[in-house]
C-alpha cells in the first residue's frame, strides 16, 4: 500500500528531502504505530516524535486514541504545531 505524505508549516522545511509517498506493508492501526513508522522510515524522521505535531488522514485530524485504517492512496498530513492569531 502506498500513502501520500503532506507536510505543513516548519516541518515541511525540515523534511524537504522526504519522498511524497511512502510504502506501508502492513499499515499501522494505532496513532503511536503511525508515528513510529514515519519516524523509522523517513530520513530525519525523529522530527515525527515532537509531541506538538498533529496528524490527519484524508483531511481528518487524528486523536491518539483513534484506531487507524489506511487504504492505498490515502493522504497523511503531518502538521507542525499551530501558531495562528
Amino acid at each position: 500500500m502506498k500513502v501520500i505524505l503532506e507536510f505543513f508549516g516548519p516541518v515541511r522545511d525540515r523534511m524537504s528531502d522526504s519522498p511524497g509517498t511512502l510504502s506501508l506493508d502492513p499499515g499501522p492501526h494505532t496513532y503511536d504505530a503511525l508515528i513510529s513508522i514515519l519516524a523509522d522510515q523517513l530520513e530525519n524522521g525523529g522530527v515525527m516524535r515532537d509531541p506538538h505535531l498533529r496528524f490527519a488522514i484524508n483531511d481528518e485530524l487524528l486523536t491518539a486514541d483513534r484506531k487507524i485504517t489506511l487504504a492505498d492512496s490515502d493522504r497523511i498530513a503531518i502538521l507542525s504545531p499551530f501558531s495562528g492569531g
Binding site: 505543513f8 516548519p10 507542525s80 499551530f82 495562528g84 492569531g85
Partner: peptide
C-alpha cells in the same frame, strides 16, 4: 476564542 485559536487552528506563521 483567541487563546484557543492560537494553538488549535492550523495556521503557521
Amino acid at each position: 476564542t483567541i487563546d484557543v485559536l492560537k494553538t488549535q487552528a492550523p495556521f503557521w506563521k
